[in-house]
Design a protein around this nucleic acid. Structure first.
Length: 434
RNA sequence: CGGGGUGUAGCUCAGUAUGGUUAGAGUACCUGGUUUGGGACCAGGGGGCCGAAGGUUCGAGUCCUUUCACCCCGACCA
């Protein structure tokens, strides 16, 4: 893509309504813009990142044997009346009426719809297990949306539901999904923890949350410094005052807090702040019983499905990546989430040799399938450099002054190190890095 | 949903206390020139139903009433 033709409205000014780094930088760098409380537009850069995350989620789930579907976003009210969640979810469900005065709900989650989909279509134990998911828009009319993409009202979420003939098989799937989620967050390049969690209102027994570690996290976790153990403090302490005290501390302050208890593995425990990006539950038969969704077992007896449910906040992940990876100059994308891997910065557009070298490299990278941007705007070096840092391209190739000596530079956004490279070697060098 | 706050140029904000020429600044944008390795400089220019509706007044961005939107603290939050 040519920067001169791209729609990337960057700005020096910090938007007044943004408090978190991810919110400020994503707006300033032109990834998203606010369309109303908790509503966001995804501009070209934001859309690219969203699709990249969606693709990784899909690839790993498909590999684990899940089936992708897409349910209607507008759902009949009757679906929610049958499960009783019409009342329990209250005002969080946005209700609308069509021209015939029929009531509908914008999907906040899809347990009911998924059960209805499977009910009477999967009727034998021989057809089980089955795992269905979708990556689709959700709407929750939150009392107070905030923190940009971290808590929007409209957001993109992957929600999955599995159906089983026995509890054992459901628990097997639960562990498979736990492993699959680890693969997904590892591929995204995130520092995360899997923690024991409160099952909350959705019900069910086993429950695990996946948290991206970041200072701005809303949850406080206790994690082992050696093994994989972790837990949300809400599940560990009954003393609400102690929970509140810990919640108020920053990520840095928490590190210095002492913990008397030790992990069962013997190693020390410590506190961290986390952003919840995934949650998996063992549901049991709660929804299948409520909605009368049964299958026939080996003896021809009708039994309710054993179920589990699995969620990933896809749009929230965009913000989480930046909460964990940014500095005072802007975004620092991971290799698997960056909107463009390489940005070619032509320092002086009036210098024909620089333009020529930039264009040649651009063509070669495009032909090699590399996601590359060329900054061909008539702007000064400093302006373009600040812009590149704000957006957060993983690598920026600076074609400037040193070109007359046969040299260009590769700027690494994360380390901020500039490396001089022979212009004849830069293509090979960048192909090696990415 | 309780408490607090803010709506004026694309963006960040002055101006409102005490009503009074043609509503301002910075930034962004357009034109011309200079400049070209860290968000340049000079000159010129365009851009506003002062959130909306109603009211008081000779006169309202400013005062009154109503309403909408957005932000912050809290409660809530798969």
């Amino acid at each position: 893509m040519r920067r001169s033709r791209a729609f990337i409205p960057t700005t020096k000014e910090v938007p007044a309504d943004a408090t978190l780094p991810s919110h400020q930088f994503l707006v300033r760098a032109g990834f998203i813009n606010s369309q109303g409380a908790g509503l966001y537009n995804f501009l070209p850069l934001g859309k690219i990142v969203l699709e990249k995350i969606r693709t990784i989620v899909k690839e790993e789930l498909d590999r684990a044997g899940c089936n992708e579907v897409q349910l209607s976003f507008v759902t009949p009210m009757s679906l929610w009346e049958r499960s009783g969640r019409c009342e329990t979810m209250g005002k969080e469900m946005l209700r609308i009426k069509d021209r015939h005065e029929n009531s509908f709900v914008l999907s906040p989650t899809n347990e009911e719809a998924m059960v209805e989909l499977v009910k009477n279509r999967v009727t034998s134990y021989k057809d089980l297990p089955i795992n269905l998911y979708q990556i689709n828009t959700k709407f929750r009319d939150e009392a107070r949306p905030r923190y940009g993409l971290l808590r929007g009202r409209e957001f993109l979420m992957k929600d999955g539901y599995s159906f089983h003939a026995s509890e054992d098989d459901m628990i097997r799937e639960f562990h498979l999904m736990q492993d699959t989620y680890k693969k997904i967050f590892t591929r995204l390049g995130l520092d995360f923890r899997v923690v024991e969690a409160d099952s909350g209102a959705i019900g069910g027994s086993g429950s695990r949350e996946f948290h991206v570690l970041a200072d701005s996290g809303e949850d406080t976790l206790v994690v082992c410094q050696s093994c994989e153990y972790g837990a949300n403090i809400e599940t560990l302490y009954e003393d609400e005052q102690k929970i509140d005290e810990l919640q108020e501390k920053s990520y840095e302050d928490l590190q210095t807090q002492s913990i008397e208890e030790r992990c069962s593995c013997g190693a020390k425990l410590s506190f961290k702040k986390g952003i919840e990006v995934g949650h998996i539950f063992q549901l049991g038969t709660k929804y299948s019983e409520a909605l009368d969704a049964n299958f026939n077992d080996e003896n021809g007896r009708a039994k309710p499905f054993e179920m589990a449910t699995f969620g990933i906040g896809v749009s929230r992940l965009i913000a989480a990546v930046i909460e964990q990876n940014h500095d005072e100059n802007g975004c620092i994308w991971t290799k698997s989430t960056t909107p463009y891997m390489v940005n070619i910065l032509v320092s002086n557009i009036k210098d024909e040799a620089q333009v020529e070298a930039g264009e040649e490299l651009y063509s070669k990278l495009v032909d090699s399938g590399v996601e590359v941007m060329i900054d061909d705007r008539k702007e000064r070096f400093g302006f373009k450099m600040k812009d590149a840092e704000l957006i957060g391209f993983v690598y920026t190739i600076i074609i400037g002054k040193e070109l007359s000596n046969g040299l260009v530079e590769i700027y690494d956004r994360k380390t901020k190190v500039k490396t001089s490279v022979e212009v004849s070697d830069v293509f090979a060098k960048i192909m090696e890095l990415i």
